[in-house]
Design a protein around this nucleic acid. Structure first.
Lengths: 208, 208, 208, 208
DNA sequence: CATGAATGAGGTTTCATTCAT
DNA sequence: GATGAATGAAACCTCATTCAT
């Protein structure tokens, strides 16, 4: 169900034993999504995970660490996937379309993860670095695509690239945001193509 | 400096007396911007405002209330201004341009306010309503503009308006966000025109 | 309405001016009766009295002092009356009857006073002395009556007087108590004679 | 020493482990008896019990709850005993004598409990119900005894029973009260018989 | 005299974290 | 490893009291 479980690497080491690390992480995300990070307690997470409070501290340094671990783990994974999908495209437009599609797809898979990603990421102080990393990576991916598009001649050359990055990321982010705020009830993935169309129009060369 | 001060109604009644309500509100925003809402303490706010802890509670029901008051007060004011500026434009494009310009301008005036607006709004549980209200109002303003644009013939008729709203708002929001995260150091206002250009291109009719 | 007002000595000094001391005392008793001493705030008393918080401290040393003043003032007055009524009787039985009647009568006049007397008297630490004083005075009055009764031959000689005092006072006190707890709604005075009958029977000589 | 310990059910399960619930309750009663409920702090109770402040809240909802728990627990137990003792008597007089004896005995066992019972019961607002319950139960027990006495012919038929209840309960209560106020130093139990004699005389039929 | 805004000590309560079992 | 009772620091908030006006 969860990405890290489907990845199925370290989880099945000792077959019968549940992987407590991921068990707790999963529970934490559920609780954070429900209450927000600061209004969640370690006890709630423990109860949700079905372990004792103290057990949490065998796997995580402290409460903050749970969120940090979530991001480092999750981000690596998600971005890996983003990159793969981008590679599968040839033209800049294909690449952008693949990126957005993949992004929405991944987030749609797990509303709780999405909720935490959208809402809690920027709250923790020692998380800023992580968050900045994320934006930077995302921004750089978009930047690469746009530059390729300019080379291909399908995107205007007079673009202020720094702005374009925010423009595209912002649009995607808000689409997810709205979806999350409304409880993740409708189909998010179907927004991908119309959204890319808008963006491409925004930065594409005008028809002659 | 602050919007509510420029409104200058009840604040300057007895001019020797400092308006403690706004003094505290101002201090709170500074502290919230620095630490985030949950990591800010009432004592910090009191110290920043130069008053005793207890004084806070003469003007606000509790800590949450400070943020709530900030939003109710601020939002009304900012949105009033947004609407005025929109009215000053004739064509849809002018209106959109005025809205974005005004938005960036208002937020550039006060980094702390911007920080809190961008980061803390969604955190407080009883604030969700407020936040939803804001998005709705903003979305509806954009919606009106786009519909006018469609009537004028300068915007495509096959747009999925719900998506367009998120696309435009998301782009604006992210531009502010990036600015805030980077400490509000560069000129935000200069982003307005290039940003509007991108959006207009995105939804505009293609040149024949 | 209140005893100290009906006594009408110092209250009408400056005709138009309300006597703040008694105004506040009166308000305090109302508030204490409603909330109990510890759950009443000085602000509530001030509001009830229609004066500013600070004004309280022009007439009373502190919150405790209000209760202390109430008791010293009230007790002196009430006990004065008790003594007068006792004097009006000739036989021990008449005296006891007068005492009980007067006691119930005085308390019925002012439920709030009664409430505070019954409930709050023993709460304040520096009030213990006062309370003990009261019991002692009351006990000694009863003691005198009983001794007279023994001399008259209408009360048994083998009574343990210390116990008889508690027995009589306890009965009276509980009758008032029940009345207060039930909101002071029924006629308290009508209990006087039946109650005295019971007590007299308890300590009286058996019919030959 | 304490009633709930003598009941000896769940308290001695793991005999190395001290029963914190009762430990805290016991400490609380000591502190309440010393300072009164409102002037006692949770910290004082914790110190008296030899636990950390926070530990209190593992066993009690809040400060009020400590008193409430004390009453619900204690009252049930004490009244159970009262009823047993009453049952052991045959005639109304025996029953009354047993009740009073038992009452004084139980209270003499634990001055602190007695102190709290006599002084604090009526203070807490959400305790009123409990207190009223107590009086009602006690009153009804007395009522039953008196009615039996009337059937037996040893008590007058023209009694106002509602008043008799207060008369008897008041007398007992005041005897305990005086004892408590004087620090529980003398023998309370020895008052039982003389006190009952007085009451019986009060309501009994006159010798022919 | 009277006011009431301001103070700040001190109370209650929560909860991340530890550690003996 | 796993537990969960215990801890105690620290947060929020109240309110008796003061003092400049």
């Amino acid at each position: 169900m969860f990405l890290w479980v489907t990845s199925g690497e370290g989880a099945i080491n000792k077959n019968r034993k549940v992987d407590k690390y991921h068990l707790i992480l999963e529970a934490a995300i559920v609780v954070f999504a429900r209450n927000g990070f600061f209004q969640s307690t370690v006890s709630q997470i423990a109860r949700e995970a079905g372990v004792a409070d103290g057990t949490i501290y065998l796997y995580f340094k402290n409460k903050d660490d749970i969120l940090v671990e979530f991001f480092t783990y999750k981000i690596k994974q998600v971005f890996e996937r983003f990159r793969e999908k981008i590679e599968e495209g040839d033209t800049a437009e294909e690449k952008l379309r693949n990126l957005v599609t993949c992004h929405l797809e991944e987030f749609q898979k797990d509303v709780n993860m999405a909720q935490v990603f959208q809402m809690e990421a920027r709250q923790i102080r020692h998380m800023e670095d992580h968050t900045k990393q994320i934006s930077k990576m995302y921004f750089s991916m978009i930047g690469d695509i746009v530059e390729q598009g300019q080379d291909e001649g399908c995107m205007r050359k007079d673009l202020y690239i720094g702005l374009v990055k925010r423009y595209i990321f912002g649009a995607i982010d808000e689409v997810i945001n709205t979806w999350v705020v409304n409880g993740g009830k409708y189909d998010l993935l179907s927004m991908a193509d119309p959204l890319v169309d808008l963006c491409i129009n925004g930065i594409g060369v005008k028809a002659p």
